[in-house]
Every structure is written in structure tokens, then in C-alpha cells.
């Protein structure tokens, strides 16, 4: 499993087999699905960029949404089109150019998310839905393979559930990460506790994506009436779908940054070939045999 190469001047390097082939394949399929689902999901949100709590939405006499958790508004009161984001009925944030109002073919138009964040780039709810459900199927089948492997192959318990000693030293791990010091040697052969927690949160958030997504289907609501109620109703499920997606975007950003700063090629190779190179710490190096 591990071959140790010891040379006098350089620290020893050891190659470990880090990622099982199922983890690697499902990881990349998942990554591709995530990109397509996110961009087509924002296209769908653009059709009605207001999020509510409960079973139903709420409107006033002028068909305007009321009591929203999150709203993207546009206004032409100042003579030009401006875009505003409003959270929980609070203050309006002017986000013109990026959110709520942005450029389409040289004109500022009403768009919750700009063309470069939606699939397709033009406003097209029908096409966005087709892309979304196409990749949703692949994502769900891929996810079932991963979760089945995680449960049956003990991947979840072996690799993702933090051990008791990791919980005890969590403070030091956080402090090391703050200083961009990453585990080396034996410690690097397993995920550290922050990695484990981040991956667990990501897996749970992905499962929440599926459940909240299915909760929005009127057909599946008839089949499983309890499903949307898990989240407090269909509109709440839609809101949690968005919140969960936002958490996953945050996860993806942190994940990519950490991949870049903690040895990008080593990380990439390990997620492609499975092999991860570990530099031994001084005290781990055995004296060269005579």
C-alpha cells in the first residue's frame, strides 16, 4: 500500500492510496452535475425571484409578493432601472449590475441572476427546467451509488466520522488551518476533523437538495404528502432548496481554495489516480539502513 523512498537530503515521500475508485468517479460526476444544476437552478429562480415560508406564497392586491424571506426587486423610479435585494422584508440593497438588474444585450433588464450565471444565458425557464431535470437524474443516480458505497463500504465511518481524539484536538486543528499549516506525515493519511465535518455537511446538504427538490413536485406531493411537510410546506422547501444550494456554493469555494493552497497537483492526482503523496515529518523518518 505504501512505498517509502528515503533520500538523505530530502524529506521522505510516501505514496498512499487515498481515494477509492468509486469515490473518485462519483466525485467528478457530482462536480459536473453541481455546476449544471446550479446554473440551471438560477435560471429557474429568475422566473420568480421571491422566496417564502409555508405551503403557499403571499401576494397583495397588485400581484406583488409580500412577506418574503428573500426578494429580488427592480425599480425604474429613478429614471433608470435599478436592482435591489431584500432579506426578510428589511432594507433594500442596491445590487444593480449583478443581482436583480443586469445587462442583457446592452440593456439593463430585470434579472435576479445575470446571464453569465444562468443556463441558458437568455431568460428561458422551459430550457432551464429541462437542463435541471436532466442533470438532476444523473446527480441522483450518482448520489445513490456514492451513498450505497459509503454505507456498505464503510467509507462514511472510516473516513468521514471524526474520531474521539480528533474532537479533543479540534481547537489546535482550527488554529493550524488559520495559519495555513496542514497536516503532514501520518496525520495526513486521513482527513482532519475540519475536512470530515465539511464533507459531512456537503453530503447532508446534497441530500437536502434532493429532498427539497422533490418536495416542489406536485406529482410527488400527491405520492408522498409528508415530504414537503418535512420542510414546513412547499414554499419553505423551495426556500431551503435555495439556502442549501447557497451553502454548497460556499462549500465549493472553500473546497477549491483549500485544494489550491494545500498542494494542488497532489490533491488533483489523488482525486484522479487515487494516489496521494505524503511528506514525512522528521521524526517519522527511519534512519536509512546501512
Amino acid at each position: 500500500m505504501a512505498e517509502t523512498i528515503v533520500t538523505p537530503e530530502r524529506p521522505a515521500r510516501r505514496r498512499v492510496y487515498r481515494h477509492a475508485v468509486i469515490v473518485r468517479i462519483t466525485h467528478w460526476i457530482n462536480a459536473a452535475c453541481f455546476v449544471f444544476l446550479l446554473l440551471s437552478g438560477l435560471q429557474i429562480l429568475n422566473a420568480h425571484p421571491h422566496l417564502y415560508w409555508g405551503d403557499a406564497s403571499t401576494f397583495d392586491q397588485n400581484n406583488q409578493p409580500t412577506d418574503t424571506f428573500l426578494s429580488f426587486w427592480t425599480s425604474t423610479e429613478t429614471g433608470e432601472r435599478r436592482g435591489y435585494v431584500q432579506i426578510m422584508g428589511g432594507k433594500l440593497f442596491d445590487t444593480t449590475g449583478f443581482l436583480a438588474a443586469s445587462n442583457y444585450r446592452g440593456e439593463t433588464v430585470q434579472r435576479a441572476f445575470p446571464t453569465w450565471l444562468t443556463l441558458p444565458s437568455r431568460q428561458d425557464l422551459a430550457a432551464g427546467r429541462l437542463w435541471h431535470f436532466f442533470f438532476a437524474w444523473i446527480f441522483v443516480i450518482n448520489g445513490i451509488v456514492y451513498v450505497a458505497y459509503g454505507l456498505a463500504g464503510r467509507h462514511f465511518w472510516r473516513d468521514l466520522i471524526p474520531t474521539r481524539d480528533q474532537w479533543r484536538t479540534i481547537g489546535r486543528t482550527v488554529w493550524d488551518h488559520v495559519r495555513f499549516r496542514f497536516p503532514r506525515g501520518e496525520e495526513a493519511t486521513r482527513y482532519n476533523i475540519l475536512q470530515k465535518l465539511a464533507y459531512l455537511v456537503a453530503v447532508i446538504a446534497l441530500i437536502v437538495m434532493v429532498l427539497t427538490g422533490l418536495s416542489m413536485s406536485p406529482g410527488l406531493n400527491a405520492a408522498f404528502p409528508w415530504l414537503p411537510e418535512l420542510f414546513g410546506g412547499r414554499q419553505s422547501a423551495r426556500t431551503f432548496h435555495f439556502i442549501s444550494a447557497s451553502l454548497l456554493v460556499l462549500f465549493a469555494i472553500i473546497h477549491i481554495v483549500m485544494v489550491l493552497v494545500s498542494g494542488v497537483w497532489n490533491n488533483f492526482r489523488s482525486m484522479i489516480t487515487g494516489r496521494y503523496v505524503i511528506k514525512e515529518e522528521k521524526h517519522d523518518i527511519l534512519p536509512p539502513s546501512p
Binding site: 405551503d55 403557499a56 406564497s57 403571499t58 401576494f59 397583495d60 392586491q61 400581484n63 413536485s217 406536485p218 406529482g219 410527488l220 406531493n221 400527491a222 405520492a223 408522498f224 404528502p225
Partner: peptide, 24 residues
């Protein structure tokens, strides 16, 4: 969907109190 819901499954029916004050 037809596999899991069959032909007969009903959409949820709500109570009078749930009726939207303003139906868009």
C-alpha cells in the same frame, strides 16, 4: 412519478383556514 403515485393518489386538500387571502 406514475410508478410511485399510481393513478389514484390525491393531491393534498387543505382546510378553509389555509385558503390564500389573495390568489394571484
Amino acid at each position: 412519478q406514475r410508478l410511485v403515485m399510481g393513478d389514484g393518489a390525491l393531491a393534498r386538500e387543505y382546510s378553509e383556514a389555509d385558503i390564500s387571502p389573495y390568489f394571484r
